[in-house]
Design a protein around this nucleic acid. Structure first.
Lengths: 212, 212
DNA sequence: AGAAGAACTACCCAAAGGGGTTATTGTAAA
DNA sequence: TTTACAATAACCCCTTTGGGTAGTTCTTCT
């Protein structure tokens, strides 16, 4: 069986030593790199040639948020597991959009970390339970929530939707068989309800709040 | 320790029996319901009062896609684990947006299912490795991809971004210190490149294609 | 029964948007 | 060195947008 090549990025020397020990002694792994920060990731990643990178987020000079992006840009096949104390949404989703393949909290056990490395190597996406839950929650449709929040009526939503598809007031009126003046009135109400000034801003807000 | 109340929705009688047996014999669980389809979820969910629901997707009459939505509408605190042979993206993401808390494939082992029930009850989000990977991939930013696709320049992107925030041509010009006429010129080019007719449509497309 | 609000229409008017055209400058690729 | 194109700016001209105001009808809630 092929050994899994693991590289570590972790600024805390004690924890880094611990991780080194863990990887070195675990069955099936070989430690190919261990670095205190991401300042030279670009030049380290080629000689290390890891299969899996364990990446802390909070490091001096250059954070793991950038680190994961750079590693993934150099080679998408390298799996990156974030390993951090942070569990705030901002950092989490930044990591994910930058290409992280897993997200573990430092409070998780060594055994879990070892399992996670195997899992990510096999094409999985290991996450701490709470993290996984937050990720799934991001897919939940607030649905009518935002629409209700702003008191947008069905008709207003329909007008907004047509506006976002490039229809002029006149065309919207023809499409849903009302006067362009009424279309205008609906939009005036929409702008008030969404607290925006104009069409483009309304469309942007409506899309971002999932109203349309 | 509190027993975890589990309810099953599975049309295959053999598998349903197997699941019943599994739940009944596993430590810490109590089986409170077992149904061959979702046709009467609304009326079953109250008397069953489950903590966790195991839900197949492909069932006669009403699919688990609707099932999970209905369960979650009745009570968001009930955790729902999808349990299916399907692993196509469409069904997966429909489940998630309908509120599923976990997603296991039937090829996974009984032990994994038992672990998953405990995990979801504790606020986690158990997923088969391949599923978790697909979920994370959905967060990956195509980033500059769409921008490149349409040949949108940095300046054009910047103008578009300000437009989406409700700035008029004049205000955009003041903001980035160029003439409003130049702003107009940039937008004319943007509309051509994005194949749209007007501001609202451009903003809608730019957001949906992740250009801004 | 009365109040509230959604949906509808209309008019005035000023500001903004958007198509077409032309032209200069700087930078980067061929 | 030519060529291409991003970024800049300006002009004409017409359409569209959006604020203000005022009013009708219909449904729904109290």
């Amino acid at each position: 069986m092929q050994l899994i090549r693991v590289s570590i990025y972790e600024d805390n020397a004690k924890l880094r030593d611990l991780l080194e020990l863990l990887i070195t002694n675990a069955e099936g792994f070989v430690l190919v790199g261990s670095h205190p920060d991401c300042r030279s990731v670009e030049s380290e990643i080629r000689p290390d040639a890891p299969d899996v990178v364990i990446m802390d987020i909070d490091m001096p000079g250059r954070s793991g948020l950038e680190g994961v992006r750079i590693v993934k840009e150099s080679n998408v096949n390298i799996r990156v597991i974030m390993h951090t104390v942070f569990d705030d949404d901002d950092k989490l989703f930044t990591c994910l959009s930058n290409g992280a393949d897993g997200y573990l909290l430092k409070k998780d056990s060594s055994a879990q970390l070892v399992r996670a490395i195997k899992e990510v190597y096999d094409g999985g996406a290991p996450m701490s339970p709470g993290i996984a839950h937050r990720v799934l929650q991001a897919f939940r449709q607030p649905k009518a929530t935002a629409k209700k929040e702003y008191n947008i009526t069905d008709r207003e939503q329909q007008v907004l939707e047509l506006l976002s598809r490039g229809f002029s007031y006149r065309m919207i009126g023809l499409e849903i068989s009302i006067s362009p003046e009424t279309v205008k009135k609906h939009l005036k109400n929409i702008y008030q309800k969404l607290h925006v000034q104009c069409g483009p801003e309304a469309v942007a807000k409506a899309i971002r709040e999932r109203i349309i």
